[in-house]
Design a protein around this nucleic acid. Structure first.
Lengths: 200, 200
DNA sequence: GGTAAGTCGAACAGGCTTGTACGAGTTATG
DNA sequence: CATAACTCGTACAAGCCTGTTCGACTTACC
C-alpha cells in the first residue's frame, strides 16, 4: 500500500486519480446525500477498488471531499477585500458565499449525516469566523445593530443562504435574483435599531 | 387483512396501535433521517409485522407520519388570531411556528428524502400560505416592505426558523432566546425600507 | 527497459434493509 | 363466551452497500 507514504512520493497518475475522485465525490454528494461509493467511483471514471486504494472508507472519502470543497471556498473568500464600508463588504461577501453555497449544494448535508458534528463545525470555523468578524467590525463602527450577538446574526445569514440555495435546487426559486434578495433582507435585518423597544 | 376496511370498523386497540406507531415514527424520524422500520416499531412498543399490518410500506408510513404531524401543527396555528397589528401577529405566528418546528425537528428532512417533492410541497401549502397572507396584509397596510415578493420574505423566515432549530438540536444555541431573536431579526428585515436605493 | 506503483474486474463475506409468510397466542367486541 | 380481529416472534427471500482479497494487466518513472 504505497499510498500511505508521503504525498510527494505518489505517482502523477495516482495523484490525478484522487483529484478525479474528490471532484466526483463533491459532484455526486451535492446531488444525492447518500451516493454510494460505486456511484462516486463510476462518476470519477475509476474502479471501486482504486478508490479504496486512496481512501480508507466512505467516511474518509466524505471528509476529504468536504475539506477539499471548503479549501477551494476559502481560496475564493480570502481573496476578498472586506476592509471597506461594512455594508458594502457584506454585500460582496454574500455574493461570493452565495456562489459557493449554490455550487456545493447538498454536499454539506451529506457530510452532516456521516461525519461527527464536531468535525464539521471545525471545518466550518473559517467561513463562519470571516462573517462574524465583519459583523463585529460593523457593530463597532455603528453600521450594524449591536443588540444581538454577532454569532447569531451570522448564523441567520448562513441559514438563509443555505435554505435559498436548496429552494433554487428544487426549482422553487430562480438563482439570478437570489443574492440580491438575500443582501437586501440581510442588510435590513442587520441595520441599527431604534434604541426604544416597542415591547415592554 | 381487515385493516383495509373503513377506519370505524377497526378495533380500539388497533387504532391505538397506529397512533403509537405514528407518534413513534415522528419521534424517531425527527432524530434520525433514515430510522429503520424496526427502530420505529421498537419505539412504538410494537412488532414489525404489526406495523406492516397497518402501513403498506416504509414510504407509506413516512407519508402518514408527516401528514399527522402537519395536521397537529395546523390545529395549533389555526387557533391563532392574526387579524390584529401585522407586526404583533407575526410575532405570535413566529412563536407558535418555532415550537412546532423545534419539536418536529428533522422529520421534514426525512420525508424530503423518501416522498416525491410534489407531495411535500402539497402538504406544506397550509403553513406557507398562512405566513404569506399575513405578509401580504402587512404590505398592504404599509407595515411591511413591499419591494420584495411576499413569498420570498416568507421563505426566508422559514429558513431561519428551520436552521435555528437545527442549531438548537446540535447544541450550538439555546432554545430559550431563539424565538425572540428570530422575531427581532425578522421584523427588522420586513420593515419598510427608505425609497432611495443606495445602489445605482 | 525493468521494476515498482497503480489500476482493473470479479468475487467474497458480512451486515443491514425492506417486505412477506407462517403459525400460535392474545384480546376486544358482539 | 365464542369468534373474528389483532398481535407476536421467527424466519425467509431479495437487494443493496461496505470493505477486502486475489490475480492479471497497464503505466509511470528511474
Amino acid at each position: 500500500m504505497p499510498r500511505s507514504t508521503r504525498p510527494g512520493a505518489r505517482r502523477a497518475d495516482a495523484q490525478h486519480s484522487v483529484e478525479k475522485i474528490l471532484d466526483a465525490a463533491i459532484d455526486c454528494l451535492s446531488r444525492n446525500h447518500d451516493a454510494s461509493v460505486v456511484q462516486i467511483a463510476q462518476a470519477a471514471g475509476v474502479g471501486r477498488v482504486t478508490l479504496y486504494g486512496h481512501f480508507p472508507s466512505r467516511e474518509g472519502l466524505v471528509e476529504a471531499a468536504l475539506a477539499h470543497l471548503l479549501e477551494r471556498g476559502e481560496e475564493v473568500l480570502s481573496g476578498l477585500d472586506l476592509t471597506g464600508e461594512p455594508a458594502q463588504s457584506l454585500r460582496e461577501l454574500i455574493d461570493s458565499s452565495w456562489l459557493l453555497i449554490a455550487q456545493s449544494g447538498a454536499m454539506l448535508e451529506a457530510a452532516q449525516k456521516v461525519l461527527p458534528p464536531g468535525r464539521i463545525h471545525e471545518l466550518h470555523a473559517g467561513p463562519e469566523q470571516r462573517v462574524r468578524e465583519l459583523i463585529v467590525r460593523g457593530q463597532a463602527q455603528g453600521a450594524f445593530r449591536d443588540d444581538l450577538p454577532a454569532a447569531w446574526l451570522a448564523s441567520a445569514l448562513h441559514h438563509v443562504l443555505k435554505g435559498t440555495a436548496a429552494d433554487v435546487r428544487s426549482g422553487a426559486m430562480t438563482a439570478e435574483q437570489a443574492p440580491e434578495f438575500i443582501a437586501q433582507i440581510t442588510l435590513a435585518a442587520y441595520a441599527p435599531q431604534p434604541s426604544c423597544s416597542n415591547r415592554p
